[in-house]
Design a protein around this nucleic acid. Structure first.
Lengths: 202, 202
DNA sequence: TTTTAGACCATTTAATGATTTTAGTCGAAA
DNA sequence: TTTCGACTAAAATCATTAAATGGTCTAAAA
């Protein structure tokens, strides 16, 4: 078997592990899932898993990264589209609010708040928050460049918007506090963002 | 001692307990503070405390309520002032963002997230969140009535604003992530809220 | 009559040692 | 190159015992 096929087979096995691990982690959570659980689900020995991954933590990171990729793909379609910047922001927020479902394993780890995993939680949180702030900054910058937006402090505004979205995850997704469709709610919020609440006389 | 003086004396002792308890809770947190700690700080026996309060939880609630009163007093000055509605909102947000310092015991309890106290946390959170939403609704309603604001869904907007403020408590107060003054940061955010980010051509 | 506090109870928490489980490694076999 | 059984060290769990704590009772003091 030449080198490329060997690497391909290696990758295939890694992908298989990540897929199965994703399901096992989803079922039991990070803490309660053992590497032996994952191995058994793959019908292999535990040390086989360690041939492909350095540690349990690395497997979990790969799982979360795969889920993040699914979200990134959707978001990149929006960023690269011909939509107006305003519509891009709308589409982005709508898609981003699916994060809690698409990146279920990451959110579960964060909410577990297990003191033994705070380091892992902080690593992941930092990585994905930084990424999100970059996306929002890019959108705000595009809007400013096209003279559609006026934003005094893009860095601050990006963080504020991300913080607001994250804060709303709980009432919108975990508590189901409103009966209107998510689209309606997000639309109202975005209109507040775009046009403000102060009435300006023409 | 007639009845009024008796009641007065009773209240005085309750106030003394709340004051001292506030300090002890602030020092050790709810969980680590024992009723005996509070009693010793007052140079009394533990069962004396139970003569004035039904439970440790009731003492803590009284402590938090006292702190909340300090914040309410400041906010009521704003609500009852002759300021324009826009300036009232500005002043309210500035004052409200002091909550994390003025209501320190409440915030400490919430961040402890002790599973044995989730019930108490939820009771207090519900109480004070409901109160805050009412204040924001009143301000938005006043603005709409004076035709200064245009808000499609006052209930939703109030909750969104409160959620955003709460979400920003961490970066602004606990992580000191920005070097500008708090006033500057809050001002920028409020301008986003009032006027939006979309440039509207006259 | 009101206030106080020591003694007490039931429950919770902490400490401890023993046992089990788990992450990760090694080396031989396939 | 890949797999896995055996193994190790550390971590986690369990059962038991002791200590601590929230709260109560009742008698004494103010």
């Amino acid at each position: 078997m030449d080198n490329d096929n060997k690497t391909m087979a290696h990758s295939n096995m890694q992908n298989a592990i990540v897929s199965i691990a994703s399901e096992v982690f989803a079922k039991f959570g990070f803490k309660k899932t053992t590497v032996d659980d994952i191995a058994q689900a793959l019908r292999k020995g535990k040390s086989s898993i360690y041939y492909y991954f350095k540690s349990k933590e690395d497997i979990f990171k790969a799982v979360v990264e795969k889920e993040a990729d699914a979200l990134r793909e959707k978001i990149n379609v929006i960023l690269n589209s011909d939509l107006t910047t305003i519509d891009k922001v709308r589409a982005y927020v709508n898609t981003r609010m699916q994060a809690i479902q698409v990146m279920a394993n990451y959110y579960t780890l964060v909410s577990e708040r297990d003191v033994n995993n705070l380091d892992l939680i902080e690593k992941l949180r930092s990585k994905y928050d930084t990424e999100e702030v970059s996306i929002i900054k890019a959108l705000l910058t595009e809007g400013v460049e096209q003279k559609v937006f006026q934003v005094k402090d893009i860095e601050l505004s990006s963080v504020v918007l991300l913080t607001a979205m994250k804060g709303l995850e709980v009432p919108l997704f975990l508590e189901h506090w409103r009966t209107e469709s998510l689209d309606t709610i997000l639309n109202d919020m975005l209109n507040m963002l775009f046009y403000g609440i102060v009435i300006r006389n023409s």
